[in-house]
Amino acid sequence: MDDDLYRAIADPTRRAILDELVERDGQSLFELCSRLIMKHGISSSRQAISQHLELLESAGLVVARREGRYKFHWFNGEPLKAITKRWPANAKKR
């Protein structure tokens, strides 16, 4: 799980996906791909973005949910807490 998390946020495209979901949560694959092209110049194939999303899902950072005939993607920041818990920002220096 830890490795999945660090691997997930190590990639700039995956970080851009998270940025876009934080801006508007609950997006379709199409909307995410449009935003990545138009706002970040990331013109990866839909299939590639889909694979990025699967990786983000396995790290728990994205939740994909079906609503009727559509599928939307949601951001979940919960797993990121593990990072600051492990390395607190205000950790005392010896």
Partner: peptide, 23 residues
């Protein structure tokens, strides 16, 4: 709507369901 009005570069786009199986 599956996508509300969104700025995409120089465009603004939105996506809706036509009730007949298409967006």
């Amino acid at each position: 709507f599956t996508q509300p009005p969104t700025e995409m570069g120089s465009m603004v786009t939105a996506v809706f369901d036509d009730t007949c199986g298409n967006l």
